[in-house]
């Protein structure tokens, strides 16, 4: 299993790697810079869908005309819908959106407090905004052209997910809710701090039982089922 330097270098050497750029907030003030960055990526790389990923894992071949690349927008910020997704749409890039589902569930008036309590960074220019998180309608709209997956229910780290109630709240319900809203499979999950599969047996089994096929970590994308 790829759990360290040696294994990571082996994966690179064997051609088993994928480029990603991890974003979080994408406020309006960042739009010109983001557009410029993503345009440069779009010139050199092709976006990666779940079908592309499944194909690579089955065959070792990317069904792409350029190297694969995923822009990833974490947390479920409203500005990911107003700024990031339209830029990706205009450039024809498929992006991935790992969302904290209870942030989306949270009433707008409580979202700042929820963010403060759950390691969700906010930007100064949006602190007075009437809403910080996506709505479920916006999640559904994003999923028409992009990949939406859970980033746990509460932006939780793996070691805090221990009881059946924790597992339901952080792993099972988020996947079910996203699939209900988008009508599409949510095949991957990712923990706060990006812990990989294979380090915590109880949580690993819970991820499998919840039906996930991929786990995203800081340095890996693991096919787990």
């Amino acid at each position: 299993m790829t759990t360290g330097f040696t294994q990571h270098r082996t994966a690179l050497a064997e051609g088993r790697y994928l480029r990603v750029v991890n974003y979080h907030n994408t406020p309006e003030s960042m739009a010109p810079q983001l557009r410029e960055e993503l345009a440069a990526y779009a010139e050199s790389f092709a976006g990666v869908t779940i079908a592309d990923l499944d194909r690579f894992y089955a065959t070792g071949v990317w069904p792409l005309d350029r190297p694969g690349f995923i822009p990833v927008f974490y947390e479920g910020y409203r500005n990911n819908h107003t700024v990031a997704a339209p830029i990706c749409d205009a450039l024809g890039l498929t992006a991935w959106f790992p969302i904290i589902t209870r942030f989306v569930d949270c009433p707008p008036a409580d979202q700042r407090a929820f963010a403060d309590a759950h390691n969700i960074d906010l930007v100064e220019e949006e602190l007075s905004s009437d809403r910080l998180a996506l709505t479920w309608d916006e999640v559904a709209e994003i999923a028409e052209r992009h990949i939406v997956v859970p980033h746990t229910g509460s932006h939780e780290q793996i070691t805090n997910i221990r009881t059946p109630a924790d597992i339901d709240r952080e792993l099972i319900t988020p996947r079910r809710k996203i699939q209900e809203v988008t009508g599409q499979e949510a095949p991957a999950t990712v923990y706060l701090y990006g812990t990989p599969f294979g380090t915590h047996p109880l949580q690993d089994q819970a991820v499998l039982n919840a039906g996930y096929r991929y786990q995203i970590s800081n340095t890996m994308l693991q096919r787990i089922a």
Binding site: A11, E14, R16, V20, Y57, L122, V123, Q222
Partner: peptide, 23 residues
């Protein structure tokens, strides 16, 4: 929190080996 972080993710399959990558 507001800038992109480029990464190379290693791809791993816990079900078994990924077929050899030609390119």
């Amino acid at each position: 929190e507001r800038e992109g972080i480029p990464m190379f993710l290693a791809l791993e399959d816990l079900r078994g080996p990924i077929p050899p990558v030609a390119d």
